[in-house]
Design a protein around this nucleic acid. Structure first.
Length: 213
DNA sequence: ACCCAGGGTCATA
DNA sequence: TATGACCATGGG
């Protein structure tokens, strides 16, 4: 049983240390879908370059991406790595998005149905799906990434080897379904990870990771 | 020269 | 179910 208090304490420490993160960094809702795929196992700075290329080419739209040959799309997103794989994944996602009628139609689906539909898209796994659900559709879905596991494990709130769904269910059971909270929480965890905490008890990062009473 | 970064799929046992 | 290989760029 994960305690609500413990999670809230972690959240408060993160927020006090770093403040609001204003996620997802994107100029449009659709750009969040693109970024979610491109950032798979990839540093965000490289994703920004790929998205800038797409924007410059006038291709930041679902049908404009679908219409692009794999090779040309791969060339545009080259800086984000895995460009051949990601070109196909992006096209699958964009084809799905357009065929489903875009945000206007998809927004009417309940979260579980929408999540299942996303997971059927080739190349969209649980984390990418949840990024999209939380940040593009404002659904109260808690995103689990490797940073979340590491942090909660260091704080002894989890073992760390739980599967994705188990972890998500535990955290969502401990917290109220609060989109704004989940949004900020995940963003803060990523922000904290980028600070590369050194376990120095004097630094503000270690205050974040100090033992929970 | 190494290591890692806001994962996911596929083949194998 | 559970590992391992694979995908690939750019920054430290």
């Amino acid at each position: 049983m994960m305690s609500r208090r413990a999670l809230k304490t972690v959240y408060r420490r993160l927020y006090r240390a770093y403040g609001p993160q204003h996620w997802w960094p994107a100029a449009s809702r659709f750009e969040i879908l693109v970024g979610a795929v491109l950032t798979q196992n990839t540093a965000w700075v490289n994703v920004e370059k790929a998205i800038a290329n797409l924007r410059r080419a006038g291709r930041l739209e679902a049908k404009a991406i679908t219409a692009l040959p794999d090779k040309r799309l791969a060339a545009l997103i080259r800086p984000s790595g895995y460009f051949n794989v990601k070109a196909r994944r992006l096209k699958h996602l964009c084809r799905w998005f357009a065929e489903e009628g875009g945000f206007s139609t998809l927004s009417r689906r309940n979260t579980e149905v929408l999540r299942a539909s996303l997971l059927e898209v080739h190349g969209i796994g649980p984390e990418t799906a949840d990024d999209i659900l939380l940040y593009a559709f404002s659904r109260p879905v808690f995103v689990i990434d490797v940073y979340t596991r590491r942090l909660l494990r260091r704080l002894r709130l989890i073992n760390g080897d739980e599967d994705y769904e188990t972890l998500r269910a535990r955290i969502e059971a401990a917290l109220a379904p609060d989109t704004a909270l989940y949004n900020e929480f995940h963003a803060l965890i990523v922000r904290h990870a980028k600070e590369k905490c050194t376990q120095d008890p004097g630094c503000r990062h270690c205050k974040v990771e100090a033992p929970l009473k």
